[in-house]
Amino acid sequence: MFGFSRTQSIAFVVMVALIVICPYVLYPVFLMRVLCAALFACSFNLMIGYVGLLSFGQAAFFGMGSYVAAWTIKAWHVDASIAIIFGGLTGAVLGLVLGYLAIRRSGIYFAMITLALAQMVYFFCLEAPFTGGEDGIQQVPRGHMFGIIDLNNDMAMYWVTAAVFIGGFLLVHRIIHSPFGQVLKGIRENEPRATSLGYRTDDYKLIAFVLSCTLAGVAGGTKALVFGIATLTDVHYSTSGEVVLTTLLGGLGTVFGPAMGAVVVTSMENYLAQFGAWVTVTQGAIFCVCVLAFRRGIIGELGALFKISL
């Protein structure tokens, strides 16, 4: 239905089963963090894996989504679903504006431009009154979903987060396997040829970028509800770096790679947190190892080992 192959269907069922079972075994708040990171990584993977553009500014969309969702639910007391939608819309609008500028260049320049534009967003958030500057937006209430589900219950929040993640995951998969997605892959492989076939490649790239940013905004909005906080860390470029690491470690351009990467990176942060800056050192070292010896990532290597596409 979503263009899954047989093995991918099995992997998907396993993933959903894990999502259902895990909250009874592990701490739900930690799992929600994994799910938000996974959705964020899926959104990034859509750009790097299928359009071949490395955006080093994804934190701008994630962070602004997080700020706007937090602000709407705190100031306007809207429904949680509306707050998350606002988060996504913020990502979309910002993605449209910044993407319009960034897709004028490709390759390394695209990465640098997205990084610089995201840095501009960061400085904006530092100065703008509604973000609370260094303090961020704190004590954001989770509120209710659709007016009836009380999200202050961790399990209720968990199921909502899980639903958002699975929805986003399937959406990305559907996009990739649509005719639109095929054109994107064509652009990645040979852009001049796609142009000569009559495709407006810039339009395709921009639409893909906006979709990616929308999902990043949704991930940010959901994260803001889960933790009740939106801070400058969400828009900082280290967050952009982290999502690159997550996807690279899981496997660029694989279906399940971003989710796998999110599990590993988030767990690592969680268990290494007591060692302070060693987290950064470890992350950097993993980056180097991945690039030098392990470019297909965990899922990509597994797929190559068993000769299947995951």
């Binding site: 490395l54 080093f56 390759g107 390394i108 990465a111 770096g241 690159v244 690279l248 302070g276 800056a277 060693w278 987290v279 950064t280 050192v281 992350q283 950097g284 070292a285 993993i286 980056f287 180097c288 991945c290 690039v291 030098l292 470019r295």
Partner: peptide, 28 residues
């Protein structure tokens, strides 16, 4: 030097990783 035959983006990612390691070590 191991990356020259690959896409330039890998060079960016590698040096980003290096910067994290260096800064982390000095912070420690």
């Amino acid at each position: 030097s191991r990356l020259y035959k690959l896409d330039h983006l890998y060079g960016l990612l590698l040096t980003f990783g290096m910067s994290l390691v260096i800064e982390g070590l000095f912070r420690n």
